[in-house]
Design a protein around this nucleic acid. Sequence first.
DNA 1: TGTACATCAGTGAACGCGCGTTCACTGATGTAC
DNA 2: TGTACATCAGTGAACGCGCGTTCACTGATGTAC
Lengths: 214, 214
Amino acid sequence: MEEASTRPPHRSTYRHGDLRRALVDAGTELARDGGPDAVVLREATRRVGVAPNAAYRHFADRQALVDAVCAVAQLRLVISMERGLADLPARRDAAANARAQLRALGVAYLGFAQREPGLFRTAFSVPGGMEYALHPILAGNTGRTAFQLLGRVLDDLVDTGVLTAARRSGAEILAWSAVHGLAVLLIDGPLRGLGPATTAEIERRLIEMVEHGL
Amino acid sequence: MEEASTRPPHRSTYRHGDLRRALVDAGTELARDGGPDAVVLREATRRVGVAPNAAYRHFADRQALVDAVCAVAQLRLVISMERGLADLPARRDAAANARAQLRALGVAYLGFAQREPGLFRTAFSVPGGMEYALHPILAGNTGRTAFQLLGRVLDDLVDTGVLTAARRSGAEILAWSAVHGLAVLLIDGPLRGLGPATTAEIERRLIEMVEHGL
DNA sequence: TGTACATCAGTGAACGCGCGTTCACTGATGTAC
DNA sequence: TGTACATCAGTGAACGCGCGTTCACTGATGTAC
């Protein structure tokens, strides 16, 4: 007869509202410090304050959550690169402008990798191959993926006569490789402990090498 | 009174002989397909046919085993690069020779990464920073580490007038970054599914870019 | 050459951990009448 | 406007797994006498 005292405990967890979003956000935080392996399903639900199995309403399995976080990481990277382009002062000389844009992309890429090493690594624990780099899901504010952003700048370099058409094809991959390699060596590899001054100088020279070498 | 029937079962596992070596070998096999995370202590002991805790006679903990496997991977890489140099036909022109050596190092590096992606990834799950890249433990048959091998070829490029002395310093890192980046994108990243012909063409052009851009 | 003994590389059993995933369920919410 | 009901996003408990690591032990081997 104590029904009054056992009245429903008002579970605020029913109808969370946007649990999927919340889990991706929590997963992203996990990825920030720890990379893709740190995206642990149980920990994400714990952070959101929900039972572990609740995640299965929104994701087929753990990998689906990781994939979603990977897409977020890609998006942050491309937005970072777009900002790098947007912050560039306009120049009269179209050729100099295109060159500056190429450098800005490299700087933004390397900057993101060092600011957010966990997300950077997560962005490249890519589920698919090349077709993924072109997928509209990963397009930033300008409607382009990181790969397409680079492609457009390279097109500008051809249009302004800096790059010959013959050298254009596949040039994305060459520039990308160089910058990506330095990023990886800096954040995970043996170049880890290099002071910021040295790092900056190396970045400058690497981008210079790409500019000359393309 | 059945002592005769309960005579000692002749355990062949006592005094294994070279358990440490055997565990490193097993760990290396695990790393070959699976990378550093696949170096699982229990699995290594299982493969050797020994109790899991036997490993603790030879390694402080799992990480110590992984570090040992990492050193093996580094060694295989450097030997691969030495072979690339050794297989080069001798040339009259010293400058052309130095250039060919630089290219050969790049080709060997990329070849190793693609032939042994697991070991390649393990080699770069490096315990230390730059000082590790110079550690004599990692020197190959010529007594040089991979980094030093590249350094010597760059010195040759300076001596033969291909590279100016001003551009020499830090050039290792630039060349290394470019080649490393392509390797990573090819084996783990979005460039995974690229046919061998395309891959070879990209490799050629990347190395060309480094040669021109340095 | 034979014997006693210390060494220490291996054993076997167990531990606690945290993970991903499955099960049958419950009860707040939105909708149809 | 009020009521019955279906929906489905969440719960709670449990699972099996394999991991790294610790413990007290054992017995083959090498060495000293």
